[in-house]
Design a protein around this nucleic acid. Sequence first.
DNA 1: ATCCTATTAAGAATTAATCTTAATTAGATA
DNA 2: TATCTAATTAAGATTAATTCTTAATAGGAT
Lengths: 146, 146
Amino acid sequence: METATLKNQASRFQELLEQRGLKCTYERKQIFDEVMHLREHFDADSLYERFKKRGLRISRDTVYRTLPLLLESGVVQKSAGAGHRDFFERIGIKGHHDHIICVKCGKIIEFQCEDIEKLQDKVCNDYGFKLSFHDHRLFGTCKECQ
Amino acid sequence: METATLKNQASRFQELLEQRGLKCTYERKQIFDEVMHLREHFDADSLYERFKKRGLRISRDTVYRTLPLLLESGVVQKSAGAGHRDFFERIGIKGHHDHIICVKCGKIIEFQCEDIEKLQDKVCNDYGFKLSFHDHRLFGTCKECQ
DNA sequence: ATCCTATTAAGAATTAATCTTAATTAGATA
DNA sequence: TATCTAATTAAGATTAATTCTTAATAGGAT
């Protein structure tokens, strides 16, 4: 798998904007930059709060509207967290991974499975879909909670 | 894979209640029965509305609280739908499946991949997790929208 | 520099899920 | 069978999460 460098992620984001005829606005650039500095998973609202704290006038709605663009350009992936919020995380050096969640204690474990990724591609191919991103979460009981 | 008959699903639900020391209430039985008659995917609120229409006094909250129990006992699985609602569907004769969703037109396709299922089990095993259920959604662009 | 359209901020509105309170009920026990 | 007790419930209020509305702003084409 190719490593996700800042440079190629930035250009993939740019490309998506171009392809869709979307403008490269100050706000979209700020959101991209901020996300690239995040090491942990996050949700739209906490990202909005970071801008607010720094005195940047970027609205909650703009954050919510920009995150799907980052998803589709492969800059972030779906993540997992407590409650019903949508969680995201930057696809960094360690690359893509998915999550196992303990339904009792809420513990979250990251896993990587290249074979599953390949099968996903195959499935999409079979149906004529061009895979953009995915959300794969396994819910169960961890060793300690069993 | 074993076929999910009404009978063994009912007993699996019963077993879960027993295991957890939960009571087999009138409301839980009604919700189970209603779900077993649904052929399409549904969300908590539409299920609640069905009871309301029939004059059954089952609260929205009870429906929301019961659905995770049906998930964990293998009676329903996570599904996919528009918006941010949690969607569910009964695991019927055709058995478990997952979803591919077109990010442009919203089209949803069901797929079954036994190999992915096996790999999921393996991954959980590796981490000492007992897999209960999962949510696997592939987002992309369908043939027509590409 | 001007114009046109997409995009935005701000906060209101909506949607989805959970919580609160008092009443009810399942299932254990006498 | 009657009584008891903790779990569960209904109803609607509340909270949480996301999207919508309106008027203002700004990217980038001309």
